[in-house]
Write a protein that binds this DNA or RNA. Structure first.
Lengths: 102, 102
DNA sequence: TTAAAAGTTGTATTATAAGACAACCTTCAT
DNA sequence: ATGAAGGTTGTCTTATAATACAACTTTTAA
């Protein structure tokens, strides 16, 4: 069992600060922009659009309303993992997959 | 833009029911057992043990208490994605990665 | 250019995660 | 067998996600 020392560990934020500079610098801004596509809201929106669904149709499948979907796609809300699971399973069927399970 | 019909979509639960039978049947039980290792709690616990951390040490890094960590590892709690992110970043440094970002 | 559809935002209510901490089990080394 | 370290569980408080719905803005098709 390999032991890792505390000092070896750094958060993603620390790492990004070191690699791309602090927020506000040009280099960091470029990174942040590219990073957008890893954001959950973006991923879900892309998947929805690829399937030609409206927010309302997705909401219907998932069992919620379009307002909530909109907020998620715009990264306005933190969500529970169970909610993400539900969105992916009910909303996207086999078209998206979540590798973890609560 | 490819269109997918509603009837083509099924939830993971539906899929598993069809493939392995309903809960309680032998075939399904075997599946459920194998499935354990995809559960978040299991994944986090494995990672923690591989790094030779105690729940208390992990809790310290993440900024919470060992009771909370215990519940997560035992899949007793649903958690927010931001919380998962924090656990992975602060608790595991570069040793685990989360592909999505809130 | 305008009407309908799609998407966003404000706000109130309810459900539940997060956080804290103590008491209690379990494991393991001596 | 016993004490200490590690892990689990009960329970309370606080923060916030989920839900709902209406009003509003933006986009799109005719």
């Amino acid at each position: 069992m390999k032991t890792v020392k505390n000092k070896d560990l750094k958060s993603l934020d620390q790492f990004v600060d070191e690699q791309y500079g602090k927020k506000g610098t040009k280099k960091r801004d470029i990174f942040e922009k590219g990073y957008e596509e890893f954001k959950l809201g973006f991923i879900l929106q892309q998947a929805r659009l690829e399937m030609g669904m409206t927010q309302e149709e997705l909401a219907e499948k998932v069992g919620t309303n379009k307002g909530y979907i909109s907020r998620i796609e715009n990264n306005i809300k933190d969500i529970r993992i169970s909610t993400l699971q539900r969105i992916i399973e009910k909303g996207f069927g086999g078209h998206l997959e979540l590798a973890i399970k609560i």
